[in-house]
Amino acid sequence: MASITRTTQASRARRRAAIRHELLGAVERCLESTTFTELSVERLVREAGIARSTFYVYFEDKGDLLAALVEDVIDALIEAAGHWWRLAPDAEKADLREAMEQIADTYRTHRVVMAAAVEASAYDERIAEQVASLVDRAVAAVAVHIRDGQGAGSVDRSLDPRQTAVWLTWMTERGLFQLVSPADAEQTDRLLQAMTDIVWNVLYAPTR
């Protein structure tokens, strides 16, 4: 009995993941012309080519779907930011720039879902908590990166790791959303240069 239940649960999870993927495409297409707040489940399922009843088998409501999509994006962003946080003590400015590009690329790939998350977090507590958890995880990881770098002599020892991490993380979160998301290729290039210069000057330059 137990193994049948497990199999059923596993296949349900797979099915939910497949439908989530279909709906992700539909959300991205729909949000070209409307806001997440105004988007109806009706329009969403029509766009995805699935039955309304199927939607409700796997998701409680539109917010539940968004929460699932945001979860995936958060994992992708944390993964991309690892390119920065795992930089070796002898990393060069070009390595930092490359890491910042990874983060920005990931954000741009998922910008529709992130914009919907920012929008919905104004009124949906669950989404607000997800966004807050992304920031919390990032602050913790940046603080560790700073502390490790201070130990290795590659990061300015006069900085408070936690406080510096708070400001830099919020800068990244907001700047990606407000500045990088709508930017064209040339603007993005300049923005990433500025972001790299800021992080380089704050953390590493004083030790070089």
């Binding site: 919020w170 700047g175 500045l179 923005l191 500025a194 000057n201």
Partner: peptide
């Protein structure tokens, strides 16, 4: 001030950083 910085883009990142922390924390 560091002559290598891009004034407009650097200012933009700093402004949004400040906006966010002032409002969140």
């Amino acid at each position: 001030i560091d002559p290598a910085l891009l004034p407009d883009e650097t200012a933009a990142w700093i402004c949004w950083m400040t906006e966010r922390v002032l409002h969140q924390l």
